[in-house]
Amino acid sequence: MEGLGRFRVRDGERVIVDSDPHATPDEVDGLLLGSVTVALAWQRGLLVLHGAAVAIDGQAVLFVGPPGCGKSSLAVALVGLGHPLVTDDVCAVAFDPEGVPTVQPGTPFVRVWSDVLPTLGLDPGALRRIDTRATDPAGRQKYFVDAAQPATQPLPLARIYQVLPGKDATLSITPVNPSLRLSTLVSATYHREIGDEIGGRDAYFERITALARTTPLFRLRRPADATRLREVARTVEVDVRGAKP
């Protein structure tokens, strides 16, 4: 990794770090929590997606979408409503013997951009800032937000939301058919090249299609107005609970 050092991930068990003396601790942490964790999860035979997940009534609800779409801040908002965090950024999915996808608990914190903190009622002064050399064009900073009661057990994956950045005042949730779910899930795959290298393309194809076949996926169009985040979180909560038999 250019300017950061060398990282070796072995057998899904061990990570050897030889960091560059010029790399900051947060930069090394960022890599350990990102690409290194992703490689580790693929080595463990998991399907690795890029997204944030929370537990609503004991079932995992996953948010995927392009960077900056608001998946992590939505997860924080749902945590604020009392739902345990399952993971942020790296979402590792296993399939139980019946083929039911389960989400593995990940980091007990979420990394969010500074501009959404006021909406979430969070004081940046009370949070740890992530030191990055790479500056955001908009001059924003990222902060760690700890989850009060993170999930500690794998949870069945109930549904997935593809979070779409807001264009106007619209807040809408629409179901997506399996062939379109598939392209969303392929886009959300985290370092697919590592998974293909480790488990092979065919194994990836079987698992990603199994997920598209079995797991409901919805397009969540969030309003452009970021201050409506809590309302979005409440809408998701109602949507998930309304789907219960």
Partner: peptide
Amino acid sequence: DLGGESALMDAAGSV
């Protein structure tokens, strides 16, 4: 099979 719909993957791995 995707429950009536289908998934295809070519030799290069595109889905």
